[in-house]
């Protein structure tokens, strides 16, 4: 208590400028290289587009193009139909990802545990899983459309089928990698099946499961863009890009790409954050 009061007292007279200065003194050395790198990248890109070597607009076009500037400034507008701000477009995509990914997590973890605890099953399913894992998300799109007929469930299915493999395979591996000692402890204590799952299997396999979940969230986000691009007439960031391309609004594509990258990064950090809360790294 005493110390916290003192720091508050000390920090109060500081101006915003001086605290920024302090922050920069502490973190500047680490932040400078990425900032310079990004700036250089943007400058080179802008110079290229000015030079006329490519028809790709430069980063400044995000501001100079009026349509794009509106999109940038008003992400929450909604004029009905497909004409929605980028926030809503992204949210629609995220909704699909959430459904497909959740299904993938549930199926992947439960099947993974089943396969991991049963050697015979593991051998039986290994070739099938490895085969299916290698099929690219785009290749699933036509299959999903044929099978499910409608865009919305097909998109969710594509997410599911893309992201389920890393979860499943990592869970299987995690279960198989449970140290023999822990299993022996469980055997000697004659832990019930429930106790074994709760106290030994899941805690032990959790780091593997999270690795799978992190890989899967990346893949799911990749897959949604691919899936939406070819599924016309739905709200979603993927279709937004495709639509912009059809209408030759190139700078809008660039803006959408920035959204996609940003959201992907956030999703990955989110899972990493969950992992650090649920299954902290151990020595």
């Amino acid at each position: 208590m005493v110390t916290s009061t003192r720091t508050r007292l000390q920090s109060r007279p500081k101006s915003v400028v001086s605290s920024i200065q302090e922050f920069w003194q502490k973190q500047g050395a680490g932040l400078l290289p990425p900032i310079l790198g990004i700036a250089a990248f943007l400058i080179v890109w802008q110079v290229f587009s000015w030079s006329g070597l490519t028809r790709l607009p430069g980063p400044l076009s995000l501001w100079t193009e009026q349509r794009t500037r509106e999109l940038l400034l008003y992400p929450f507008y909604d004029r009905g139909g497909l004409d929605k701000g980028l926030f809503w477009q992204t949210l629609a995509s995220l909704g699909r990802v959430a459904k497909g990914y959740t299904a993938a997590a549930v199926v992947g973890i439960s099947v993974g545990v089943l396969v991991g605890t049963n050697d015979w099953l593991n051998k039986a399913t290994y070739p099938v899983f490895q085969f299916l894992r290698m099929v690219a998300p785009l290749a699933w799109v036509p299959i999903a459309l044929v099978a499910l007929q409608q865009n919305q469930p097909a998109a969710i299915f594509v997410i599911f089928i893309t992201s389920v493999w890393p979860i499943l395979i990592n869970t299987t591996e995690g279960v198989r990698q449970i140290p023999e000692d822990y299993n022996n402890v469980a055997k000697v204590l004659k832990l019930s099946r429930k106790d074994y799952y709760l106290n030994v299997l899941f805690p032990s396999a959790l780091p593997y499961i999270f690795t799978g979940l992190r890989i899967a969230i990346g893949l799911a986000w990749l897959a949604i863009i691919a899936a939406e691009i070819v599924m016309s007439g739905i709200v979603g960031i993927g279709f937004f890009i495709w639509d912009a391309y059809q209408q030759n609004y190139i700078s809008e594509i660039i803006l959408a790409v920035i959204y996609i990258g940003g959201v992907g990064l956030l999703l990955d950090r989110l899972i990493a954050f969950l992992q650090s809360k649920i299954a902290p790294a151990r020595k």
């Binding site: 140290p179 000692d181 822990y182 022996n184 402890v185 000697v188 106290n199 030994v200 805690p203 032990s204 151990r282």
Partner: peptide, 12 residues
């Protein structure tokens, strides 16, 4: 009951 060589405590 066995006392294992590498303790076998559940680390979580």
């Amino acid at each position: 009951m066995v006392v294992f060589q590498n303790y076998s405590l559940l680390p979580w």
